[in-house]
Design a binder for these strands. Structure first.
Lengths: 223, 223
DNA sequence: GAGAAATATCAACGCCTGTTTAGTTCTAGG
DNA sequence: CCTAGAACTAAACAGGCGTTGATATTTCTC
């Protein structure tokens, strides 16, 4: 068409790369804040300090901008351990604490928009099924392996969503450690049934009042 | 303004009542299907078989239409039993099975729109806190009573949302009874810690295969 | 049937949206 | 300094949105 638009794979670190990043950051912030529809190109451009036309020029279309804003890869390999229960623990911790560190992550954007955009929903379905359900289910020793894995994913989704997106009072104000302490045993029960020998027989109960007592708690991936 | 608009509380069962209901049903369907923004008044009117102006004439404003579409009362009294664990069981069952029966219930609308509408989010916050968290927490004997209740609500939200709204493959295709069988023990563990004496020590395991065995299963709040 | 009130429709308004077009400014390289 | 190309922007477009006021149609009452 016009031929004057910035090429995607021209030379590395051209001047426009900065602008492109700033637009992308503003887009993620807006998408995560108000969802796809209400995040207007005009508002994104204003937040990035550029003209609305630049947004189109760099990304072509609002949908393409959204697709890129939502592109996301979870390095679950780093979280995986031989013990599936521990893997789920780590995943839960990583999901919640990374969200606290970066509220505008692609994950946040995807979760918020997935309820009103079929495309986002499909992306989320594919991602969660492939990256979480299948991997977790592979290590679950039960006939309902996949369902158990899917359930654990749904529960994580619920907790993260209500804590960070909907900001449900009691959940949003709670300490992250308290949430993890109460929730983790449930996931263990679901994912690794019958593999909690030396612990108390009441996973969710508070035996003596040990707050975040976890032998080697994973620090979670910073942003 | 014009004074010719249909009065709300005139005489019972006027002709316009039918139209009003049809608009409301179409609105709920659309809101539940695509969320607040994409559910245009024009589309709702078309689905109801009326002119777009009629929608405004009956409900004044899109926001008011939405508010009414989302008005919702859970008769949790009917679900309550002396045993808090059983109450949560019933609530979970009611929530999931009522959704299956009526996918366009006010609850469905509220859940879907809560992610992108601050007003819907606030309604959901207030509703869940008052109708669920506080009532459940009152019967939980633990220092984290409210957090436990909130967590259980978040988990229910996650399961219901991923099963019915996002239609996550493994979860959406599963039998309702299987979901309940796997999930219910977790809620019991969270809400009534230490009150599962005669059951096996593996809550998630399959004891004998009792599918939907609940003495008096509550039919759930059909809209 | 006439008249009034309730109900439904039509055509248009003003606004905001994503996107395009044409043009301007900035930034190298000779 | 000059100019080619990259980076940016102002102005406008077509289309969809919620909403409105006037008007037509149906329904009820006498």
């Amino acid at each position: 068409m016009t031929g004057s638009r910035p090429q995607a794979g021209a030379e590395p670190e051209r001047k426009g790369e900065r602008t492109r990043r700033r637009i992308m950051e503003a887009a993620r912030r807006k998408f995560a804040e108000v969802g796809y529809e209400r995040a207007t190109i005009r508002a994104i451009a204003a937040e990035a300090g550029v003209d609305k036309a630049s947004v189109i020029q760099y990304f072509g279309t609002k949908q393409e901008l959204f697709r890129e804003a939502v592109r996301w890869h979870v390095p679950i390999e780093e979280l995986t351990t031989p013990d599936p229960a521990r893997t789920v623990d780590n995943y839960l911790r990583a999901m919640l604490s990374s969200w606290a560190a970066d509220p505008d992550s692609p994950m946040a954007v995807l979760l918020r928009t997935s309820m009103t955009s079929e495309e986002a929903a499909e992306l989320l379905r594919r991602h969660v099924t492939k990256e979480t359900v299948e991997r977790v289910a592979a290590n679950v020793d039960a006939p309902d392996a996949r369902l158990r894995a899917a359930l654990s994913g749904a529960m994580m989704f619920g907790i993260a969503t209500q804590r960070y997106l909907l900001r449900m009072p009691d959940l949003a104000e709670a300490d992250l450690d308290d949430v993890l302490r109460l929730a983790a045993p449930l996931f263990r029960t679901l994912i690794a049934p019958g593999s909690e020998p030396e612990r108390g027989s009441e996973p969710g109960a508070v035996p003596g009042s040990e707050p975040g007592t976890d032998p080697e708690a994973v620090p979670g991936p910073g942003s």
